[in-house]
Design a protein around this nucleic acid. Structure first.
Lengths: 210, 210
DNA sequence: TAGATTGTTAATCGATTAACAATC
DNA sequence: TAGATTGTTAATCGATTAACAATC
């Protein structure tokens, strides 16, 4: 029924979305695949193909209506609704994400942040989120209808913590832990591995003559 | 002369490196592509192929010597030396990275963090890094021989800041700004786009039936 | 109608994988 | 020698791109 969608497409849609949002603020009414391509250094045909997996959003001769396409991509990406998010681990990264405006703006609501450390529990982040006890996690997940967990715990406990949150019903994980985690296939994991990006950069800097 | 190396290889090497480091701590002496593959959910042939771009590191019948392979990958990735890093922008993300242990351990030395805000300049992060004035950036980059800049500034000034640091001689950028930045091709940019990962997760959660 | 731009097909390019001879 | 595992080739798979008819 559906044509298979290449993996890189989702991320590119999110990139198109970002540009469209910006363009709509600037008052642009329409945009063509070639102008979008120029802004993003992508081939126009790739943009058209990416969109074509989900429908025909453009008008021949004119291009795409900025607002309409933005709304359509919002639906495709599932950010036309808000997702309830729990941050697990109040270390540096966890706390930095707690009020990350990029997330809050685009459909993600941080409903809580938990940690094990006595010292951290009870502390407030930017006057509106209080670090809670990880022991309360099950209750928090169920009562606040948490759908996405952001894993920012030490590597050695990551798999254990993941197993718990999955038991409590979470279906999506953004994983900041530098470790391959196992989960049932109905649980989606997206890895954000900052230190891999640094190493990839190092590699490119060292091997750039090739 | 050299066979072209597929883009995903650098990141996988960094992943192999992580596992090898772990394994060497556990006292493992050798590892085979199939056991590594099992741990990482990768095909053994992919691992062997990835390594083969850079040499023959294994011994037939036995596998790879853990320490030797680790050292070899360190060289390939360019993390056998230390890189001097400047964090540009002392917002949440910038400050979180300032003492990120994952970086410090694996070859990256944070030599400074700068910001424009009067309020932030002079403040100390974790008792060992002081936020400096972005006006000092040129001096800092030249004197401390900064090679890598970590861009954590607001989107609207990102390209301008990037242009400056490139002028000051920086050759590598880890970009946390959600924007496509332009740079001469001898300057390497690695994008870390956290909000794209959240959107990609949302996409997968919504479209998982497909 | 003429010009612009889409949506889609088919060709190309790039990455992964299976298979197996080489060899420890 | 027999068993294990590499390094490498060739086949397969997946993603991108060019090309163009359709159509606004």
């Amino acid at each position: 029924m559906f044509e298979k969608i290449p993996k890189p497409v989702a991320r590119r849609l999110a990139i198109y979305y970002r540009v469209l949002k910006e363009q709509s603020k600037n008052g642009a009414e329409t945009i063509s695949s070639s102008s979008l391509g120029r802004m993003l250094d992508l081939k126009p045909s790739q943009i058209r193909k990416d969109l074509s997996y989900f429908g025909g959003f453009g008008k021949r001769g004119t291009g795409y209506n900025v607002i309409d396409l933005m709304k359509s991509i919002e639906k495709i990406l599932g950010i036309d609704k808000r997702w309830n998010v729990l941050i697990i681990g109040a270390g540096k990264i966890g706390r930095a994400l707690a009020n990350y405006p990029g997330l809050i703006q685009d459909g993600f609501t941080i409903k809580g942040i938990v940690d094990v450390s006595e010292k951290k529990i009870g502390k407030t982040i930017d006057e509106h989120l209080t670090i809670e006890d990880v022991a309360e996690m099950e209750k928090i997940i169920r009562e606040r209808k948490i759908e996405i967990g952001v894993l920012c715990v030490p590597s050695d406990v990551a798999q254990k913590v993941l197993n718990s949150v999955i038991q409590y019903g979470i279906k999506g994980i953004v994983n900041f832990v530098p470790k391959r985690l196992k989960a049932p296939k109905d649980v989606m994991i997206e890895d954000v591995q900052i230190s891999l990006s640094f190493k990839a950069l190092s590699f490119r800097m060292v091997n750039s003559e090739r």
